[in-house]
Nucleic acid binder design. Structure first.
Lengths: 178, 178
DNA sequence: TGGAGCATGTAATGAGTTACATGATTGG
DNA sequence: CCAATCATGTAACTCATTACATGCTCCA
């Protein structure tokens, strides 16, 4: 009864109550959105698989062909098994890095532009995370609730520092060295 | 003539000379390995597409069905276009984070184990990056050659700090708080 | 000279994204 | 009552990984 991470995430979300695929996709975005993206299509595909394995139970078809999915006992077991299994390797893919690796053939002005746009995007994310953190703390969030958010915070901070120290004024993108 | 990032990477690597798919896969691992993984199967798939579009030229079939691929003029143009295009969004997927989000249902001892295994893996990577950096500096590597490596360094440093401050002694995984 | 290992490529499968179709609700 | 919007799901496609097959080379 091995499930993949995305299917497992759905099982995890179903602990909060039965749901349609649409709802699950929403829960996923709300609760995991920033560090584990799941699209609706994935949800439906995985739910089909989970139902085939008896890990979720599909209810009657309601309005707008809505089908509610409920976690079964074996679904809960499978979820716990996945939870205790060794996590897979991280996937980190930064399109900007790939371009930097080949930047010898890129016009310097355009390069500076790319870099500054990307930096702005990261700065924005960091700002958002800070707001989320403040909001969580204000409403009594525990460390537990914040671990994943804090990961995001540290990640964005590190990335920004990298931008500024490696690519900023003094870095090779602005033309002083390299 | 829009190409995806992986195909573009192959075009970029082909600037260093014609190559078989196998060789390209090796170059990709050697030169981009740590921040842009490319499998052999991907290489062949993309090469087929690139050949169809006339962006690479396929030579005669040699020993072991080896086919050499050469960058064409339009291939070079397509490469430059990709290079100057806006990079896509980062993909960062950390299976451990997903587990942490659901860790309420995980046995604390097992959780500590998972965390410590993952931490060790990151520490190892950091050490490797540091060696690579030292080696690069020793052989006269410029900042340009080091940007991507430095990204990896900062990333791993940030991740380790996160481990230690959020999950280490005092963090909720070791049971003091939360 | 034959087997270990490298070089080369293919097939099958799984995961993720984009685009599409349609049925209910609801506020104006 | 109808137009906008939300809820729901499907189909088609692209991208990525795993498993497989086979042909050279080379050295013990």
């Amino acid at each position: 009864m091995a499930v993949n991470a995305t299917a497992a995430a759905l099982l995890g979300l179903l602990r909060d109550g039965a749901a349609s695929g649409y709802e699950l996709a929403q829960r996923a975005t709300a609760e995991l959105g920033d560090f584990w993206t799941v699209t609706r299509s994935q949800v439906y595909r995985e739910l089909t698989g989970l139902a085939d394995q008896g890990l979720v139970e599909v209810g009657q078809t309601g309005a707008r062909s809505r089908r509610e999915h409920r976690l079964t006992a074996s679904g809960r077991v499978a979820f716990r098994e996945w939870l205790a299994a060794e996590p897979g390797a991280d996937v980190v893919r930064i399109p900007l890095l790939l371009r930097l690796a080949f930047a010898d053939e890129l016009d310097p002005a355009r390069l500076r532009e790319l870099v500054s746009t990307q930096r702005a995007a990261h700065a924005e994310r960091l700002a958002r995370y800070r707001e989320l953190e403040a909001a969580a703390l204000a409403t009594g969030g525990t460390d537990r609730d914040l671990v994943t958010l804090r990961f995001g915070l540290r990640y964005e901070e590190a990335v920004l520092r990298w931008f500024d120290e490696e690519l900023g004024p003094g870095g090779w993108v602005s033309g002083r060295r390299g």
